[in-house]
């Protein structure tokens, strides 16, 4: 298929956001791509990288997302030893794939594009799976599939819900058909989780394209997206080149997907933790955090209110 990728390999990570923001000297000030406000970089970090003036959601590195969501110190990371192999002996214009992996690891401080583990959100256990776009455009390869399958299987064994935070530029082309097959592997893991009636909450963040969009991320039980996130199967440049049509305004934004019935709702970053806590409580009523049974009398409603 010729339309799988948006622009994998071209991104230049700077402050975890390579799309539109212009960074003024020394990375001290960042210009908001939406409202052009100049924001002090540290202030942006303190506000979860959401523009204080217009609410634009800048991209976030995976570990930053984890810090924002979980109870402090509660994240126990899994399968940190898994590393990509080079089954194809893949060489492109930039050299062998293992060299590219090594350069990326040095540059990003991560060993792969997907981080998995278990955490607590206000005391509630949650298996958390987060993609890091800075690592080869969060392209889905064999390590991604294996880590995700293991995490989902463990969730099944323990009776824990799963939340995935999904960004991707497409397939890990350097891993060829293995990369494509991770779509199957990840979906099958969630198929099994569903048979156990354990929920999968998926958050789509900017940008989310290709095989991740066409696999587990969009068949979750709850599909959420961050405001303004670009989400699609085929990349915009590919669609423009092939169809020679002008793309509609707002094409492939989270708001566009909501309007077309493709996601359940849009959630602002600062509201996510509270929303996830609510979802866990709604679905995990028989779990270890079983809330007090609700007796729907008028009195109890008054008291709760």
């Amino acid at each position: 298929m010729r339309n799988f990728f948006k622009r994998q390999g071209k991104f230049q990570p700077r402050n975890g956001d390579d799309r539109n923001d212009q960074i003024i000297p020394e990375d001290l000030w960042v210009k908001c791509p939406k409202c052009s406000e100049l924001i002090y970089s540290k202030e942006l970090d303190r506000s979860a990288r959401v523009c204080p003036k217009c609410g634009h959601h800048f991209r976030l590195r995976a570990r930053h997302r984890i810090r924002l969501l979980v109870d402090p110190g509660s994240f126990e990371e899994w399968d940190t030893g898994l590393r990509p192999e080079d089954p194809l002996a893949f060489v492109d214009g930039q050299g062998p794939y293992p060299d590219k992996v090594e350069r990326t690891q040095l540059k990003t401080g991560e060993v792969e594009a997907l981080i998995t583990g278990v955490c607590r959100v206000e005391g509630r256990p949650l298996v958390l799976v987060v993609a890091d776009f800075d690592f080869l455009g969060a392209s889905m390869g064999s390590v991604w599939g294996e880590k995700l399958a293991r995490a989902v299987e463990r969730a099944g064994e323990h009776g824990w819900p799963v939340m995935t935070v999904n960004a991707s530029g497409g397939a890990r082309m350097h891993e060829g058909l293995f990369s494509l097959m991770q779509m199957a592997k990840t979906v099958s893991a969630f198929h099994r989780l569903g048979e156990r009636r354990l929920p999968h909450f998926s958050l789509l963040v900017d940008p989310c394209y290709g095989g991740v969009t066409a696999s587990y991320a969009t068949v979750a039980d709850i599909v959420m997206a961050e405001p303004g996130a670009l989400i699609g199967f085929a990349g915009q440049r590919v669609i423009e080149q092939i169809t020679r049509q002008k793309l509609p305004d707002g094409f492939q934004t989270a708001e566009f997907l909501l309007e077309h019935g493709m996601i359940d709702f849009i959630i602002e970053r600062q509201q996510l933790r509270q929303q996830v806590r609510t979802l866990i409580d709604l679905y995990m009523r028989d779990g270890e955090n079983e809330p007090a049974p609700v007796v729907a009398t008028a009195a109890s409603i008054d008291v709760d209110a």
Binding site: R2, A214, V219, G232, A234, I239, I242, Q252, H260
Partner: peptide, 12 residues
């Protein structure tokens, strides 16, 4: 890889 396919949820 078309616009209308994206509108109707190609990935999904």
């Amino acid at each position: 890889p078309g616009i209308s396919s994206e509108e109707r949820g190609q990935g999904t």
